[in-house]
Design a protein around this nucleic acid. Structure first.
Length: 677
DNA sequence: CTACCTCGAGCTCA
DNA sequence: CTCGAGGTAG
């Protein structure tokens, strides 16, 4: 007779509790009370028991640190509270202005106290703890929705799987930054070099790349760490009155807090902190790109609230952007979708701000004159984080004798049409319009892009070929391409050609807003297109609207009205529009999303294997008409999998996740029921 | 903008 | 194995 399960379970709980505790001592307190060897022994013992008694394994077991079987993709998750970005300040004065605005708004005469902390250059993360257990980790995403990276986050040793202490909040959403230490980065890269694998270019990219692994067992081998810096949504605890006290509380629960965090009693303290940290920056074991100042008093934070995308109670003081000298090898002139001619500097590659810069925009003619830059010059290149690299100035003393002046072209480098400039703008434009191959290419790329007609598989390289071989002149021609024609292109064979033909056909079913955006009317972006489509409802009404009528739409001013009117006044454009409609491009009449019309609303379906009665594309369209989203891979979010003969791994994945699986007959019955078959 | 991960498909060579 | 495309992050 074996040991009663109840005793096994008791031992597993003891082991897990001990491991959580030792983790806490090690990572939160930096004061371990057992050796690494002893820790490993405990972990191994727990792993053995979990293997033998998998049903007794706890959801937040410390053994998950080694990773789990690969995912088929990351699910989207909604943040309990949006993850905002911060306003930037680049010098003391801008910090002072921030402080002034905050105090004016609060009517606050005394100095404000700020929590000062290093701004780590890593990847932002949201950690959700329910009753003390880590139940979810998510990336920032667009701030509202991010990706579910729970299994990867669980492998990060400094992130507690269970919070320590009693009286834990029912819900606690912790915000933090996941990063890779410089030492860890060096070790990782040198072992990658030894085994001939490719190395990462900087610690931030190494951290981001590690988190994007679908196989968390790989993530587990990466030296990642985290510092928590705040709380998003929380329930079931008494929030302290100061931000600094919140951080201390997080630390007591076992979350790692950066040891350099301090409270500054006033602005001078903030400036001082900045200078002290700037001095230590290079000797830290992690990259930072600035300081974050947060008003310490949470009541005041609450009163200040938020602007569109950032809190009014915090600001990021950025370190000066990094600069390096390099050589200007050449200047090329690129022509964009609207004909704008942009000079692009080709530089001798230089490593600055964590990446290799070999191109930089020179914006326009004025910028070239302002810099007085010549080809062959030694130039200073600046790059800060996500900021686009720029040429700051020329090193005059090092100008070579044979430096060549940059001649801004009078004629378009692509089509030879005259380049024109108008009084109202600094940019120069190619006047060729659709005569210009560069403008046509860009128009096609834009038309096919995801937010426009969403033609899967039609990228820049393919567009280049289509235009250069004169297979496509305007977007209308896309709809008359056939499989053999496409299959003759480079890197296209029968399979790809078929997929592209299907994707182009599928794009015919669109929405008015997407169609409008796809046309590429100047100044009409995604949001404006949606506003125009919503307001007018039909192409006829929109195309016949006067500028005044156009301006009745929210956020449409004289400029948008002018360009929209101008677009529909051109016979060439009207021909394109009618050509598209003739080719079968269309959209449903606007009607409120009626629940009865969307029986599969909110559901995610996946097609796998071969369908006999219709093509996959058709099935996809029909399911979408019923309101379902059709995804390419099975995840926990999947509502139903339609499996035809020859279905492969997706079926196994569905079984593993307990997702419903139906056959084609079932799908056909469903479609018949709604008159779609 | 640059870097990274993932996928499907084409190319190449055994 | 390599390429192109699509997607994500800062």
């Amino acid at each position: 007779m074996s040991t009663p399960e109840i005793e096994i379970q008791a031992e597993m709980v003891r082991l897990a509790t001990a491991l959580h505790h030792h983790n806490y001592r090690y990572y939160a307190l930096d004061d371990p009370d057992i050796t690494d060897r002893e820790y490993d022994d405990l972990l191994r013992r727990l792993q053995e028991l979990e293997e033998r008694y998998p049903h007794l394994k706890s959801a937040d077991s410390p053994t998950q640190r080694v990773g789990v079987a690969p995912l088929s993709g990351f699910d989207q998750v909604e943040h309990l509270q949006p993850m905002l970005s911060l306003d930037n300040a680049f010098n003391d004065q801008e910090v002072a202005e921030f402080d002034r605005r905050a105090r004016d708004r609060l009517n606050w005469r005394q100095p404000l106290a700020y929590v000062c902390e290093p701004k780590l250059d890593g990847v932002a993360v949201s950690l959700l703890y329910r009753d003390g257990s880590l139940v979810r980790g998510a990336t920032r995403g667009d701030g509202r929705q991010g990706e579910d990276i729970t299994v990867n986050v669980r492998t990060i040793a400094s992130i507690p799987l269970r919070l320590q202490g009693d009286q834990l909040p029912r819900i606690l959403e912790v915000r933090g930054e996941i990063y890779m230490s410089r030492a860890g980065f060096e070790v990782l890269n040198s072992s990658a070099r030894d085994s001939g694998e490719k190395t990462f270019v900087n610690p931030r990219n190494a951290a981001a790349g590690s988190l994007r692994q679908l196989d968390s067992r790989i993530t587990a081998t990466r030296p990642l760490a985290m510092f928590a810096y705040g709380v998003g949504h929380s329930e079931g605890w008494q929030l302290p009155g100061r931000h600094f006290a919140v951080l201390q509380q997080l630390q007591h629960w076992g979350l790692p807090i950066n040891p350099l965090v301090e409270v500054a009693e006033d602005l001078d303290g903030c400036y001082d902190y900045y200078r002290r940290l700037a001095e230590r920056r290079d000797s830290l074991d992690y990259d930072i790109d600035g300081i974050v100042y947060k008003i310490n008093d949470l009541e005041l934070q609450k009163r200040l609230g938020f602007v569109a995308r950032a809190p009014r109670w915090a600001v990021a003081r950025k370190f000066p952007a990094q600069e390096m000298a390099t050589e200007l090898l050449d200047v090329e002139f690129q022509v964009g979708r609207t004909g704008a001619v942009t000079p692009v500097a080709r530089l001798k590659p230089v490593f600055v701000g964590g990446v290799t810069v070999s191109n930089a925009t020179l914006h326009n003619r004025d910028e070239i004159e302002r810099l007085d830059v010549r080809i062959g010059d030694r130039v200073i290149v600046r790059r800060a984080g996500d900021v686009i690299p720029q040429i700051v100035k020329v090193v005059d003393a090092e100008r070579p004798a044979d430096a060549r002046p940059i001649v801004f072209p009078e004629h378009c480098p692509v089509c030879g049409s005259p380049v024109e400039s108008t009084a109202s703008e600094t940019v120069q434009r190619c006047s060729g319009g659709l005569v210009c191959a560069a403008q046509r290419k860009q128009a096609l790329v834009h038309f096919a892009s995801r937010k426009a007609m969403d033609i899967d598989g039609l990228g820049e390289k393919l567009v280049d070929q289509l235009v250069e071989r004169e297979l496509v002149r305007s977007v209308v021609d896309l709809y008359h391409l056939d499989r053999p024609t496409l299959a003759a292109l480079d890197r296209m064979a029968d399979k790809s050609a078929g997929n592209l033909v299907d994707a182009i056909a599928a794009s015919k079913n669109t929405t008015f807003a997407r169609f409008l955006y796809a046309l590429g009317i100047r100044e009409v972006g995604e949001a404006t297109a949606a506003a125009l489509a919503g307001h007018f409802g039909s192409l006829d009404k929109l195309s016949s609207a006067s500028p005044d009528e156009l301006q009745e739409v929210d956020d449409v001013g004289p400029v948008v009205a002018h360009f929209t009117r101008e677009f529909f006044d051109s016979q060439d454009n009207l021909d394109v529009v009618s050509g598209l409609l003739d080719a079968g491009v269309g959209w449903p009449d606007p009607q409120p999303a009626d629940a009865a019309e969307r029986p599969l609303g909110g559901q995610v379906w996946v097609l796998t294997g071969t369908l006999e009665a219709m093509s996959r594309t058709e099935a996809k369209e029909k399911l979408q008409r019923l309101g379902a989203k059709v995804a390419g891979s099975v995840s926990a979010k999947t509502s139903c999998v339609v499996a035809g003969p020859g279905a492969g791994s997706k079926l196994g994945k569905a079984a593993e996740l307990g997702v419903a699986v139906v056959d084609e007959d079932h799908l056909l019955a469903l479609l018949k029921q709604h008159g779609l078959f």
